[in-house]
Design a protein around this nucleic acid. Structure first.
Length: 164
DNA sequence: CCCTGATTCGC
DNA sequence: GCGAATCAGG
C-alpha cells in the first residue's frame, strides 16, 4: 500500500485527533504502526501534545505545537440510504459509505463523541463535515466493533516473532 | 508483557 | 521515501 494523498490526509487527521499510531495503522489498513510513525515523522508531525512529562527525552527537533482546528460541526444529511437502522440517539441520519456501504448502528459519532468503548472505524471522508466514526459499542479498549474489526484485520495477522 | 512514540538504517 | 527493527518510556 502506498501513501496516497488521500491516505496521508487521513493520517494527518487521525493523528491530529489523537489516535495512536497503531489505531491509525489499522484504520488505514495495509500499513504497520511503524509505517505510520515513520510517515508521521517524515511529514514533520511528530511531537504530538500528550503528557508534558511523558515525552521522550530524545533530542528531537523543536517541534512547533500544532493547534488543530476545531472539530468539524456535527452536521448531517442522509445520503439517500434507506437501509438504515434505528437511531437510538439524537444523531442525524446514518451515513452510508459509498465504497464500503457501511452503516453505523448509531449513525456514527463525531470525534468528540468517541469514547473508550466506541468503534473507531472511520466513516466517510475525513475532510468532510459528515465524517465520523462508527461509534458502535465495543469492549473497552477495542478499536473496532465486530463487523469493522473483520475489515481492519481480516487475518489478525500480527508480526510473528519466529524465534522460539 | 502490554502499550506508546522515536530513531536508525537497509532498502 | 519507506518501513522493519530497534530503542526507550509508561
Amino acid at each position: 500500500m502506498s501513501w496516497t494523498d488521500d491516505r496521508i490526509e487521513t493520517l494527518r487527521k487521525l493523528w491530529a485527533d489523537g489516535l495512536s499510531a497503531s489505531q491509525i495503522a489499522t484504520a488505514l489498513g495495509g500499513v504497520s504502526r511503524n509505517a505510520v510513525i515513520g510517515k508521521i515523522h517524515r511529514l514533520g508531525l511528530s511531537g504530538r501534545v500528550k503528557s508534558p512529562k511523558a515525552r521522550t527525552p530524545a533530542k528531537r527537533a523543536p517541534v512547533a505545537p500544532q493547534r488543530p482546528a476545531q472539530p468539524a460541526p456535527a452536521r448531517v444529511m442522509a445520503v439517500g440510504a434507506t437501509a438504515v437502522k434505528v437511531v437510538e440517539r439524537e444523531l442525524p441520519a446514518p451515513v452510508v459509505l459509498p465504497e464500503a456501504e457501511i452503516v453505523s448502528l448509531h449513525g456514527g459519532v463525531t470525534l468528540l463523541e468517541l469514547t473508550h468503548s466506541c468503534c473507531r472505524w472511520p466513516i466517510g471522508d475525513p475532510s468532510d463535515a459528515n465524517f465520523r466514526f462508527c461509534g458502535a459499542r465495543t469492549a473497552a479498549g477495542e478499536v473496532y466493533c465486530r463487523a469493522h474489526a473483520e475489515q481492519a484485520f481480516p487475518a489478525r495477522a500480527r508480526k510473528p516473532k519466529e524465534n522460539a
